[in-house]
Structure formats: structure tokens, C-alpha cells
Amino acid sequence: MTAAAIDARGLGKDFGAIRALDGLDLEIQDGEFFGLLGPNGAGKTTTVHLLATLLAPSRGTARVAGHDVVRQGLAVRRSIGLVFQETTLDRDLTVAENLRFAARLWSLPDGVARPRIDALVRQFELLDRRDDPVRTLSGGMRRAADIARGILHEPRILFLDEPTAGLDPRARRLLWERIRGLRAASGLTVLLTTHYVEEAEPCDRVAVLDHGRLAALGTPAELKRAAGVGSLEEVYLAHTGRRLAETDGA
């Protein structure tokens, strides 16, 4: 039996009186494409930040790539790539300078980093913009550069936190093609958070978070069958729409 890529047990996080995440149990297998759905404030980003060691859990434990997120933060961060909701690129530096900066942060020797940066820039169609400041790039190009930054160190596990927010349909489609290509080429484990439910259709498994709790978990087909509905969107609404219905009725 191979170790799970991600294994969370009773993971919880409070911000003051707010329970952002309330006892999450989650196991994601190596190579899995996993979708985490939920409305804003459901705890998706909190989950990602806990797993990426950017936040310390209030309760529970989690292992990422076999390493404990509290005690082995460096080893966890070495195994993961994280593409944040908002860009983390330095707008004043060029695409190539940003990637070189990231390569140094991840301690990649120049000899390893240079060919990888060249390949990524080509793969993400940024070749003719590589020496332009990031500030001059379109939203879609910036996102592409962000993702290139996230996979430059060839992580085992990639977190994509709302990667398509603010992108036009063409840029979104292009991005999904690239992620599919990456998964096919490297067997990368991907944890995706999104509230565009249709984007989670190709996921191996999907979890729906609501109010910091796991409301549903399974393959898209299982979830549809269990809810007796035809689309993932209806599954999502069935699990998270309650609150709206209650407030409407009151």
C-alpha cells in the first residue's frame, strides 16, 4: 500500500471565534485529481493553507507527501507547489526574472533551473514575453506564469487555489489543457479548489465543503447518483443550497 499524498485527520482551524475549518478528514491518493468545492468562506483556502504549512492547525493532524505539516514544514513545502488565488509574481520583474527568483528560493542550481525555465516558458507560450515585466502581461499570461512558477521545482503535489478566477473563457480552457498535459506527463497529484463547479467534472474525486465541514465526498458519478441528480452543479446546490433556502424561507 502506498502512502496517501494527503492525509488529514480531524483537521480544524479557528480564527478567533470563527470556526473556519471544523474537523476535516480527507485522504487523497498519489496521482489523484481532487476537486474541493464550496461557497466563499466554506474553508477551501484555509484547507489549502493548512496543508501548505502557511497556517498552523488549531486541531487535528495532516500529513502531506508523508510529512507532518506541523513538525516537518520544510519537507512538506519541498514536496508541494502552490498556485495562490492572487498572483505572487513581482510585477516589476520580468517573467524570466520571476522564475529565476523562484528557482533560487527552491535552491535549484542554475544548471537545472535554466533549461526548465526555457521549457516552461515555451510550454506556457510566454516565449516572446519572457523579458517583459509581469505588469505588462494579460491576466491569462500572468496565471500561466504563476503556474509555471508553481511547478518549476517539479513538486509531487500541486495545489491550485481558484486558478481560473478572473480569467476569460479562452484562457480558462487553455489553462485546463495545460494542467491535463502536466498530469499526463508526470503523474502529478492535483488538489483544485474552485466554485466554478463544472471545472470539477474531470476530477477523479470531489469533496464539497460547507461551513468548514465536509458535506459530500466521492467521484462525480457517485455524488450525482447519491443525490439523484444529473450534474455536479445540482450536487453542489443540494449540499450547499440549504442555507440559502433556509434564509429565504425565514
Binding site: A52, R77, F84, T88, D90, R91, F101, W106, S107
Partner: peptide, 14 residues
């Protein structure tokens, strides 16, 4: 504010 700090904090360094 620009988010660059997070790139540094998610890198495998202390």
C-alpha cells in the same frame, strides 16, 4: 501587498 512575500513563505526555507 503584492503577494510576493507568500512566494517566499511557501518556499522550502525557514
Amino acid at each position: 501587498e503584492a503577494g510576493v512575500l507568500r512566494m517566499m513563505l511557501v518556499a522550502p526555507i525557514r
